[in-house]
Amino acid sequence: MDLDRICREIVEGSPDAIILGDAQGVIRLWNAGAEAIFGYTAAEAVGQSMDLIIPERLRARHWDGYDRVMATGQSRYGKGELLAVPALAKDGRTLSIEFTIQMLRDEAGAILGPAAVIRDVTRRFQREKELGKRLKELEARAAGREPAA
């Protein structure tokens, strides 16, 4: 069994985005799932900063957390907890994504960077937002008042 080939097939065949960033936050791996979600080809994304998909208003917070994880090697999102954040697609759309990360290390244990497995949850997020709005309207009607616009 050729495990290297199987691993490559898993990464490339995943509908989820699998992105590897190095310790400086430069994209080093961008699979077909990332292409489908974000709209950039691997040729366009690899070698670029992760700012490519991070909304400008969130970049300072992102890099504070990224630097902390690179310094400590610890992230709560590596233990199965999902991080839900907005992201940017190539066409300028804002996406809602959820992801976990796995810290990758070299043979000596030095941090190489995080690998993120990312899922586009934009449709679900929009449905939940619409349901929340509808629930507030129904609660307001049941209480005998009109909902705030």
Rank of each mutant, 00 (worst) to 15 (best):
L82K: 14
T72E: 12
V69Y: 02
V26H: 06
R57C: 02
P114G: 13
G21Y: 00
R68K: 15
I37Q: 11
L83W: 00
L52R: 11
Y40E: 07
L29Q: 11
T72M: 09
I18G: 03
G73S: 02
E35N: 14
V26G: 13
G73V: 07
R76C: 09
A60D: 15
P55T: 06
T122E: 09
D67H: 12
D64C: 05
Y77M: 09
E35Y: 08
A45Y: 07
S96Y: 03
K133F: 00
G113K: 11
R93C: 05
T122W: 03
R124W: 04
A23G: 08
D51I: 06
A23K: 15
Q74V: 14
M50V: 14
P86W: 01
S49H: 05
G25A: 04
A60M: 02
T41E: 14
G109H: 09
E130G: 08
P86H: 03
I37C: 08
I97C: 03
D91M: 06
G65R: 14
M50K: 04
G78Y: 00
L29C: 08
L83T: 00
R93A: 08
R61Y: 06
R123W: 02
A45C: 10
E128Y: 02
Q48C: 13
L20W: 01
G132N: 15
G21T: 02
L112C: 06
Y77R: 12
A60K: 08
Q102L: 09
F99P: 01
Q102I: 07
L82N: 12
G21D: 08
D106V: 10
V85E: 04
L135M: 12
V46Q: 11
G92P: 08
E56F: 02
A17G: 15
A45D: 10
Q24L: 10
N31C: 09
P114C: 12
T94Q: 14
A84Y: 00
L135F: 06
R93V: 02
P114Y: 04
M103L: 15
V69F: 01
A36F: 01
A42W: 07
F38G: 00
I97M: 06
D22V: 01
Q126L: 13
